[in-house]
Design a protein around this nucleic acid. Structure first.
Length: 604
RNA sequence: GCGCCCGUAGCUCAGUCGGAUAGAGCACCUGCCUUCUAAGCAGGGGGUCACAGGUUCGAAUCCUGUCGGGCGCGCCA
C-alpha cells in the first residue's frame, strides 16, 4: 500500500458516495482516475484528475464534479484541505499525522520498505552480458552488464522470482579463432619464436598465460599435430580459462549470475536441442524450405540464391523469414538462440528479459517472433503492422527486450576506436580499478538505457568526484552521522524499537520535515513503476532528488539552529527527528541497494 | 533503399500510458564554513521542447510528414 493508492481509494469511495446521492450517474468508468503528486508544491500534497476524466461520461462540468467531490472528501479525517483549481484539478493536503504515520510504516518495514508484491513470485529470467568468451570484458560491455543487473535487482525487490543468466557463445567461428590464437601462444610458451601475430587472430597479451597453462597441461604433445587433432580440445581449454576472467570482471562490478548457459551444450553429447526446438516450430506450421529475397540496397556480390530451412518470423512482424541452417549444413547462430529460448521456456519462466546492445537491434524482431511462436503469444504492432514495443504479449510467457545504446568512447575529447585485434581496448577492469565500482555503476544507470552515452576515459577518471553517486551517498552518510552523534548526545536514545516508533512524531511540525516524509512516501510507487517498465534509471533520479531535499533541509539548520536534528536540551524532539532521519536513511539505502551501489556510513 | 533508436538550456541529460507557469547537473555570475560532515546550501541569467501540420478542454508527450544524428539490413556471433 502506498500513499497514492491509499488516497485514491478515498477518492473512489467518495465517488461511489456521490453516485448513491445521484450527483453522479451510475456506470461510470473510474479506470482513468489517478492520484499523483503535483510538480508545483503550491498545488498541494496530492492532486486528482477525477473531475476532468469523468466530466464527459457524466455529462457534467468538471468544476461541478470537483466541487461535489471536494465537499465529500473534506469529511475524511486524514485530509486537511481540498481545493478545486484550474480546469477541475482537486488539490489535496493531508494532515501532519498522516505523514507522521508514513515514518512509522518505513521504520516498521525497515530494509523492506518499498518492496512490492506485484511480481507475485513469478519466475523471471534476466539474460544479460553474454559477452563472447574470447577475452576479458571491455568498457563497452559494462553498460548492459550494470543495466541488466539493476533490472534483476529491481524485479527481485518488486516480488519476482529472478534468475540471472549468461549465455555463453562458445560455439561458432569466434571461439575457433580463439583456439588458434591460444595455440600460437602455446607454441610460444614452449620456446618457439612466433613473430608477429597473424591478422585474423587475437593478439591480446591476456592469451599468454592461457598458452602457458596449455603447455603445462599438455607438454609438447600437440606440436606438429594438424588443427583437426587439437582444435576442439584447445577451444574447450581456452574457454575454461577465459570464463573465470570474465566472472572476475563481473565480480568487480558486483555482478553474479545464477546460470551460465553454454551454446555448445545445445548440440553436445548426442542430444540435439536445436532439432527439438525446430520440430516444435514445424509442428506449428512455422518452418518451411524456401528462398529469401536479396535485401535492397545491400549490394553483396557474394549473394547466392539458395533454398534453405526458414522460420516464418514474418508472421510475427519481422520483415523477412529467417534462416536456421548454413549452406554447410550446420546451424545458424539464430537456430541456437531459438533452441536456447525454447529451453528457457521449458524451464518454466513466466517472464523473459533480454538485454541487447544497440548493434543487435536488427535481431530483435526474430527473437520476439520466436518467443511469440513458442508461447502462443503475439508481438505488439500498430495499425500499420509495425512493431510497437519490444515485447510479446498474450502468450503463456512473455519476452521483453531491453536495448542499451552504445557507449561512445573518447579519450581526451577525441573519439577512440577500440579493437580487440589491434589490442587497443580499454578493459572493464581498468575502468573499475581507476574510477571505482560505485561511480561506474551509477554513471551507467543515471540515464535512460536507450540514450547514447559518451564515455571519456580521461574525463571520467579525473572528474569522478562530480559523479552524482557521491551526492546520494553523502546524504546517506550524513544521516548515519547524525544518528551516531545523537546517540552520543543522548546515550540510550530510542526512537524505534522492534519496528515500532516510540518517539513522539507529533513534534515534527516543520514544513521541511514533512516535505521529506512526502518524498520518502513516493518510494514504493516509484519502485513499482520502475519495475513494471524495467527502468532502473528512475530509481537513480529519485534518489538524487531525495538526497537533494535532504541536503537542503540539512543546510537550513546552519542558519536556523532550532531546525537541527540534535537539540541538546530536548530529548523528545531529537528522538522524533531521528526517526525521520532513520526513515530517510532506509529509503536511500534501499534505493542504492537496488542499483547495486554501496550505502556508506561515512564519506570522509 | 528499408527497419529501429535518438533530437528538450552553451554542454550532459530527466520529464513522454496527454495535465497546471517545461526541470536538474556541469559551465557562468552573487552570497553562505566560530556550524548536527561545505563531496553541501540559497539565489541569478540562459528555452520557437528539431521543423510543419493534425487530434482536444489541454500536447515536450499521441498521429502524419520533413530535416538532422546513430545502429542495423540472408549463411558472422
Amino acid at each position: 500500500m502506498n500513499v497514492f493508492a491509499e488516497v485514491e481509494s478515498k477518492v473512489l469511495d467518495a465517488l461511489a458516495g456521490l453516485q448513491k446521492q445521484d450527483v453522479l450517474p451510475e456506470g461510470l468508468d473510474f479506470g482513468n482516475v489517478a492520484v499523483e503528486h503535483p510538480r508545483d508544491p503550491s498545488h498541494g500534497d496530492l492532486a486528482c484528475n477525477a473531475a476532468m476524466v469523468l466530466a464527459k461520461a457524466a455529462k457534467l462540468k468538471p468544476r461541478d464534479i470537483a466541487d461535489a467531490l471536494a465537499a465529500a472528501l473534506k469529511a475524511d479525517p486524514d485530509i486537511l484541505s481540498v481545493e478545486v483549481a484550474g480546469p477541475g484539478f482537486l488539490n489535496l493536503r493531508m494532515k501532519p499525522a498522516f505523514w507522521h504515520a508514513v515514518i512509522g510504516t518505513i521504520l516498521g518495514a525497515g530494509a523492506r520498505y518499498g518492496a512490492s508484491s506485484i511480481g507475485a513470485g513469478e519466475r523471471t529470467n534476466v539474460e544479460y552480458v553474454s559477452a563472447n568468451p574470447t577475452g576479458p570484458m571491455h568498457v563497452g560491455h559494462c553498460r548492459g552488464a550494470v543495466f541488466g543487473d539493476a533490472v534483476a535487482n529491481l524485479l527481485q525487490f518488486a516480488g519476482y522470482d529472478v534468475t540471472r543468466e549468461y549465455y555463453i557463445n562458445d560455439a561458432g567461428g569466434q571461439v575457433d579463432v580463439l583456439a588458434r590464437s591460444v595455440f600460437l601462444r602455446y607454441r610460444e610458451a614452449l620456446g618457439e619464436d612466433i613473430g608477429e601475430i597473424p591478422a585474423g587472430l587475437y593478439p591480446g597479451e591476456y592469451l599468454k598465460p592461457v598458452g602457458e597453462a596449455l603447455a603445462k597441461a599438455k607438454g609438447n604433445s600437440l606440436v606438429g599435430q594438424p588443427e583437426s587433432a587439437w582444435l576442439a580440445d584447445v577451444r574447450t581449454f581456452a574457454i575454461d580459462q577465459i570464463m573465470p576472467m570474465i566472472k572476475d570482471d563481473l565480480a568487480a562490478l558486483n555482478i553474479k549470475h545464477d546460470v551460465f548457459f553454454s551454446e555448445a551444450s545445445l548440440t553436445k553429447g548426442g542430444t540435439d536441442k536445436v532439432q527439438a526446438a525446430v520440430a516444435d516450430l514445424r509442428a506449428r506450421g512455422l518452418i518451411y524450405e524456401g528462398r529469401l529475397e536479396k535485401p535492397k540496397g545491400h549490394d553483396d556480390e557474394e549473394w547466392e540464391d539458395r533454398e534453405q530451412t526458414l522460420f516464418k518470423s514474418s508472421e510475427f512482424g519481422d520483415e523477412a523469414d529467417r534462416a536456421l541452417m548454413k549452406s554447410d549444413g550446420s546451424y545458424t547462430y539464430f537456430a541456437g538462440d531459438v533452441a536456447y529460448h525454447y529451453d528457457k521456456l521449458g524451464r518454466g519462466y513466466r517472464h523473459l528479459i533480454n538485454v541487447f546492445g544497440a548493434d543487435h537491434i536488427g535481431y530483435i524482431p526474430r527473437m520476439l517472433a520466436t518467443v511469440a511462436a513458442f508461447t502462443g503469444g503475439a508481438v505488439e504492432r500498430d495499425a500499420k503492422g509495425k512493431l510497437k514495443h519490444w515485447h510479446t504479449t498474450g502468450g503463456s510467457a512473455d519476452l521483453d527486450i531491453k536495448v542499451v545504446n552504445l557507449v561512445k568512447l573518447f579519450k581526451n575529447g577525441e573519439p577512440f576506436k577500440m579493437s580487440k585485434r589491434a589490442g587497443t581496448f580499454v578493459t572493464l577492469r581498468d575502468v573499475v580499478d581507476e574510477v571505482g565500482r560505485d561511480p561506474v555503476r551509477f554513471m551507467m544507470l543515471y540515464r535512460k538505457e536507450l540514450e547514447q552515452l559518451d564515455f571519456d576515459f580521461a574525463k571520467v577518471t579525473e572528474q569522478s568526484k562530480d559523479n552524482p553517486v557521491f551526492y546520494v551517498q553523502y546524504a546517506h552518510a550524513r544521516a548515519a552521522s547524525v544518528l551516531r552523534n545523537a546517540r552520543e548526545t543522548f546515550p540510550g536514545l530510542a526512537f524505534a524499537e522492534g519496528g515500532k516508533v516510540v518517539a513522539d512524531l507529533s513534534l515534527l511540525t516543520d514544513a521541511g520535515e514533512l516535505d521529506l516524509v512526502k518524498k520518502a512516501s513516493f518510494y514504493p510507487s516509484l519502485i513499482e513503476g520502475a519495475a513494471r517498465a524495467h527502468e532502473p534509471h528512475r530509481v537513480a533520479f529519485y534518489l538524487y532528488d531525495l538526497a537533494s531535499a535532504f541536503h537542503g533541509h540539512w543546510t537550513r539548520g546552519n542558519d536556523l539552529p532550532q531546525l537541527r536534528v540534535i537539540q541538546a536540551d530536548n530529548r523528545a524532539l531529537t528522538a522524533a527527528r531521528c526517526a525521520l532521519i532513520a526513515a530517510l536513511q532506509h529509503v536511500l539505502s534501499s534505493g542504492l541497494t537496488v542499483l547495486g551501489v554501496g550505502a556508506p556510513e561515512a564519506m570522509r
